[in-house]
Structures are given as structure tokens and as C-alpha cells.
Amino acid sequence: MTQDDLFLTLLASPATPGLARTLISQRLTKWNMTDILDNALIVASELLANAVEAAPGAELRLHLRHVQNPRGILFRVWDPSPRAPLPRATAALTLTSIDAAPEDAWDHGGGWGLPIVQSLSTACGHTPTPPKGKWVWSHLTS
């Protein structure tokens, strides 16, 4: 970890993704990496929302690192849940499939977060941290 990294400890709450997006946006602007800002904010939102869902009320950790070669960022979120992240959606990721939510859940199709992260990331995955928890990470290139 370098002193330029963004490293935060946050409470898992519905407000967490929004707060993180604000701080990530400021850091990427400082690093002159606004070309990947939109994708980074989507990835951050998805990974943090999953962490909040996996461990509501728990302590989460966020780590954002500027990577030089290849130029980009490494974004990681830690939560205490031992459960590995698994996409709930099984259809191919298309605009039509994302919009295929049942009428009674029109604003929450659900399950598309990890496929979206996979499509926007150069690489992504998770790393267990025994005795509990895991880091879920995404690498985005500029």
C-alpha cells in the first residue's frame, strides 16, 4: 500500500456506496484518470452494494490503488462474510436481459452486478481471508 492509495473502513449501510463513489471520484480526478471514472463508479457501486447485502451493519474495507503498468486502478472491497460472490443472473448480459425484471420488481432486476463488473473489468475475482471474510476485487485499465 502507498500513501496515495485510498483506504477506508466503512459501516455496511445503504449510504456506503454513495459515499464511496464521491471519494473515488475525487481520487481518480486527482490521478487524472477520468477516462475510466464512469466504469470505476459502476464497479464500486456493485461491489459495495454486494458487501452491504452480505454483511449488513458490519465493518467493510475499501482499497483503491493507482496501478502504473498497465495504467489503471485496482479496486478492492473486504467484508466479513465467508460466502463467495456468485452472480444470480444466468442469461447473457444484454440490454434486453437486464430489462427483463418481473413487473412487480420493475426497478430491481437483481443479480446483474457481478456480470457487469466482469464486463467492465480487465480482471476481477475474490480472495478469501481466513479465518473470515474475503476481498472482492476489480482491475480496470485506462
Rank of each mutant, 00 (worst) to 15 (best):
K30I: 09
L140D: 00
V117M: 07
I98Q: 14
W31C: 02
L64S: 02
K132L: 12
S138G: 05
E59K: 08
I42N: 07
A44N: 07
G109F: 04
I98R: 12
E46M: 02
W112Q: 06
V136F: 00
K132G: 14
D79V: 04
M33E: 14
A101N: 09
H66D: 07
A12E: 02
E59H: 05
V52E: 01
G111C: 01
H66T: 01
K132N: 14
W78S: 12
L10T: 03
W106H: 14
P85G: 05
A40P: 10
S97M: 01
S13F: 03
D35V: 15
F7Y: 10
N32W: 08
H126D: 13
H63K: 14
I73R: 03
L23Q: 13
A51C: 00
L23Y: 10
P56E: 02
N39H: 15
S138W: 03
L8K: 08
D79Y: 02
P131G: 09
L19C: 05
I116Y: 01
L37S: 09
L60P: 06
D4C: 02
G111E: 05
T96Y: 06
F75H: 07
T129W: 08
L6P: 10
L86N: 09
K30W: 10
H66I: 00
A89G: 04
T122R: 13
A54K: 01
I116C: 02
P87D: 09
Q3C: 01
D99V: 07
L74D: 15
R71D: 13
T34R: 12
M33S: 11
V136H: 01
A54F: 03
S25M: 06
D5N: 06
A100T: 15
V43H: 05
D35I: 13
R83H: 15
I73Y: 03
I116N: 02
S81Q: 09
N69W: 07
T29M: 01
G113N: 09
L41M: 08
L120D: 13
L19F: 11
L62G: 00
R83Q: 15
G125S: 08
V77I: 08
D107V: 06
S81L: 09
Q68P: 00
S97V: 06
K30M: 12
T29W: 00
T29H: 08
P80G: 05
Q26A: 13
P115N: 07
G18T: 10
G110Y: 04
F7A: 15
D4E: 09
D35T: 15
L6K: 04
A58V: 01
V117R: 08
T90F: 10
W112Y: 11
L11A: 06
E53H: 11
Q3S: 03
R76Q: 14
E103C: 11
A84G: 06
L6H: 08
S25W: 00
I42W: 06
L95V: 10
P14H: 05
Q26P: 05
S25R: 05
L95A: 12
V67Q: 11
L62T: 02
T22G: 11
P70E: 02
R76D: 13
K132W: 13
L140Q: 01
S138R: 03
L41I: 07
E59Y: 04
M33Y: 08
D107K: 02
L60H: 08
P85Q: 03
H126T: 11
K30Q: 15
A89D: 03
W78N: 07
